[in-house]
Design a protein around this nucleic acid. Structure first.
Length: 263
DNA sequence: ATGGTTGCGAAGCAA
């Protein structure tokens, strides 16, 4: 199974680019974040034309997450069904070819110590709680999306310059680590040890060309999947050219015990 | 240099 995640920063502005990329990359499952669409405006027909089913959870102007799959899409669950939903439409779970997939868009946190920062930390805790109530770490689980945290110093361009700023604080990294301690591992790092590989670059100041980015888009997988991860990539080509998202897609290949049925 | 750029929606907010 090839699973991918991409914060597209408006699916309306990015649809052609996303579908063109899908035709090349051929993900089996694609998790999207920041669609910035209401459910009624989600372009499910465009994905269907490519052979994909889709599910979307969006409030219109901000946020919005989706799961797009060509290997089945069952048991769709939007949101937490609890207080964490106050942060917006940022979570969508679905089962694809036996894998419980979660498309997540963790709150940005804005400034360290702010109300939004505290909400971000609570959101991580709510996600761990949801996994604990719905899933077992022994099952095939994937949590994919924009976590708005760079896990380690080698996931940012200049750790010294960023000390104490959002996305790299001890509190945020601990919240991510607490989530992972439930039973998830960073699939990308199983095959890519190098520093300097990023998934997001600020639009401002030519950050991409200056190689000033962060790796904040992750595919987290439970042990049964981690054992089968065969390949991982950040497709930084998608940060180039006309009208890119500020994020690049992340791809992970997972060898399946049984062939995934084609649709 | 508290800047810079993009998207949404039509001014300012969020990232």
């Amino acid at each position: 199974m090839r699973i991918a995640t991409w914060n597209v920063n408006s699916l309306k502005a990015r649809l052609e680019r996303v579908t063109a990329w899908m035709a090349e990359a051929r993900p089996d499952v694609l998790c999207l974040q920041e669609t910035k669409l209401a459910d009624a405006a989600f372009p499910s027909a465009a994905f269907e034309a490519l052979g994909y089913q889709s599910a979307h959870h969006g409030d219109g102007q901000w946020n919005g997450v989706a799961v797009v799959s060509r290997v089945g899409l069952d048991d769709v669950r939007p949101g937490f069904g609890g207080p964490a939903d106050a942060a917006g439409c940022r979570l969508l779970a679905a089962t694809c070819a036996g894998v419980r997939v979660h498309s997540v868009y963790v709150p940005n946190g804005r400034s360290v110590g702010s109300e939004h920062f505290e909400e971000k930390l609570r959101w991580f805790a709510a996600l761990r709680e949801l996994l604990g109530s719905c899933c077992s770490p022994g099952d095939p689980i994937a949590v994919c999306g924009d976590v708005n945290v760079a896990p380690e110093d080698h996931d940012v361009w200049d750790p010294a310059a960023l000390v104490g700023s959002t996305h790299v604080t001890v509190e945020e990294r601990q919240a991510l680590a607490d989530l992972c301690s439930w039973g998830l591992v960073d699939a990308f790092r199983l095959h890519q040890p190098d520093a300097g590989i990023y998934s997001w670059w600020d639009y401002r100041g030519g950050s991409f060309h200056r190689r000033q980015g962060m790796r904040i888009d992750l595919v987290l997988v439970s042990q049964p999947l981690a054992e089968r991860v065969s390949w991982a990539l950040v497709d930084r080509n998608e940060r180039k050219g006309a009208q890119p998202s500020d994020h690049a897609p992340v791809l992970v290949d997972i060898a399946c015990a049984e062939p995934v049925p084609a649709r």
